[in-house]
Amino acid sequence: MRGKENREKLIQLFLLTIALSAISILALISIFIFTEGLPIMFRHGFKKFLFSLDWYPSEGYFGLLPMIIGSLLVTAGAMVIGVPLGLAGAIYLTQFSSKKVRNLVKPMIELLAGIPSVVYGFIGVVILVPFVRENFGGPGFSVFTASIILGIMILPTILSISIDSLMALPPSYREGSIALGATQWQTVRMVLLPAARSGIIASLILGLGRAVGETMAVIMIAGNATALPRSILDPVRTLTSNIALEMGYVSGEHRQALFATGVILFIIIMILNTMANLTSKRMAS
């Protein structure tokens, strides 16, 4: 009997260790970023990092405002494109299409998530950038182009989680509403979307996270200029691109400034996540 109990405890301990190590990796990463990035921010002042427009790291100018704006613009643009498409697709596939179509289309869209981001970037450079340059003007490498590609990249996340949460609703919601004389669309709008909103909001958060964090595709198509964009056809640099582009060769204060970029990125993502969580909680109650 004792042997069995001991084994039980051992397994518990083992699982606890694994669970803790996952968290401790996250903790280590955060600590590392903050210890590397915070000192330089204290030295030069947060204001300079957050609100200055000049990024000349070799001369000691560390203004991240253009990159912060760049990240926010590109992310917002991606959401503007990805959210309506993703939701509309999820509604169509769960409510209006036949099972056959759904079983064919859903895996194909989920396959989009498996394509490496460098491929998205490549397609963006080869097809979308020249297209935008010729039809809309500007250099082609722009907020607009990056938003389109990112919008497509977050589509599978939004779509497949939204589909799952709509499918998880009891069929009686739909039948009950339709049996009361509501049309299909009224049923979707008034009953199903509100009932599935926590899952749908979760899908938006994940899509948002993916858009903010995406680096490779954005580097290839956003143009990476460190100036403030004047229109959506101007190039921008995002926080993630800033780190990836310069990390290879830097040292000293410049290197610390890139960690400071990471700190700001970290904080932005935390804020977005918390906001999304709060809204979903408020809507649920």
Binding site: Y173, G176, S177, A179, G181, V191, A195
Partner: peptide, 18 residues
Amino acid sequence: TELRRKVGMVFALPVPLP
């Protein structure tokens, strides 16, 4: 929709709308 308003239905599992 008119038909379903005239012919109301109650289901086995009482599922009120949320």
